[in-house]
Write a protein that binds this DNA or RNA. Structure first.
Length: 290
DNA sequence: CGATGCCCCTGAGAGC
DNA sequence: TGCTCTCAGGGGCATC
């Protein structure tokens, strides 16, 4: 599922149920996600208060008062659902799904968190590419999950100077370079395709062949498409939903992703083409993207 | 170092 | 209805 906008949407939705709240009960229902749960996972969370939530790359960071941070990755198909247990299903300004007795007992509901909000948060992931772990908060930057992670694309640090330096001498296609989490953190297949279309650059172009003016445009369009998608609650294709159960709606705004054989919106006579690059689909218009 | 391919896993949809 | 095949918002690892 999730790229930066989807992870940001989920993280934001979790805030009212988690920030300032205490984990009253935590249950793991199967241990074989992408990596095993750390020793004493549920016990180390129980009784801890959440000090803040934030996002780094495609990870949700749940910072706790005991010096540890719960780190969550949604993989391809992970979702978090919040079930408010107050009578009106409201937490802060948000409304959530109904808290019925079955919440958290589904076939692929792997982790259930209860907080004193009161709320129940259920992690569901049918493909089990997601992961959850605990890391000492002070040591997060040095942890192997994060030590090589690149710049946040919505930060000021991500600018044309940075990107031109990063792409210099790279013989790999621009599509692969933009997907490389060591360069830019949080971009995935959808938003790379969309940003390249907006910037009129072919995904097949070698990274080092992207000209300075195009790099400026690309930086601007990456930021723009991510901001628009965050505002839309992300893209719901198969698995992504907001923690409230509502869908994101950015998928209705795709110019190229999942639109093979459709006409290019620029009305340039081009037809959106699907090609495979390093094992993943790229969608682009061969007329306006060169 | 870089490019490629394969793997993890389940489910949905298409084609026959 | 059911089988088989392909594909899916990610990322790690082996290989050449």
């Amino acid at each position: 599922m999730p790229e930066l906008p989807e992870v940001e949407t989920v993280m934001t939705g979790l805030k009212p149920a988690l920030e300032g709240r205490v984990f009253t009960h935590v249950e793991t229902r199967r241990g074989d996600l992408r990596i095993p749960f750390p020793k004493g996972f549920a016990k180390r969370l129980t009784g801890r208060r959440v000090t803040r939530l934030w996002r780094r790359a495609k990870y949700i960071m749940v910072e706790l008062d005991g010096g540890e941070t719960l780190v969550i990755h949604l993989g391809m198909s992970g979702s978090m659902s919040v079930y408010a247990q107050g009578a009106d299903r409201k937490l802060g300004e948000f409304y959530y799904e109904r808290a019925d007795d079955g919440a958290g007992t589904g076939k692929h509901d792997h982790v259930v968190f209860d907080t004193d909000a009161p709320a129940r948060i259920v992690f569901n992931d049918h493909r089990r590419f997601g992961l959850m772990t605990l890391i000492g908060t002070e040591a997060i930057g040095a942890h192997k999950l994060f030590k090589d992670v690149g710049v946040e694309p919505l930060s000021a640090e991500f600018d044309a100077a940075f990107l031109s330096q990063a792409l210099k001498n790279k013989k790999t296609p621009i599509k692969s370079a933009l997907l490389d989490q060591r360069i830019i953190a949080g971009l995935g297949n959808i938003y790379v395709c969309e940003a390249l279309w907006r910037a009129r650059i072919s995904p097949r172009r070698l990274a080092r062949r992207v000209r300075p003016g195009e790099i400026e445009t690309l930086v601007r369009e990456i930021k723009a498409v991510l901001r628009e998608a965050v505002k839309a609650g992300g893209s719901s294709l198969r698995d992504h939903k907001q923690v409230s159960g509502e869908l994101g709606y950015f998928q209705h705004r795709f110019a190229v992703y999942d639109r093979a054989n459709k006409l290019c919106q620029r009305k340039d006579g081009g037809t959106i083409k699907r090609i495979v690059q390093s094992g993943r689909s790229s969608f682009y218009c061969p007329v306006c993207q060169r």
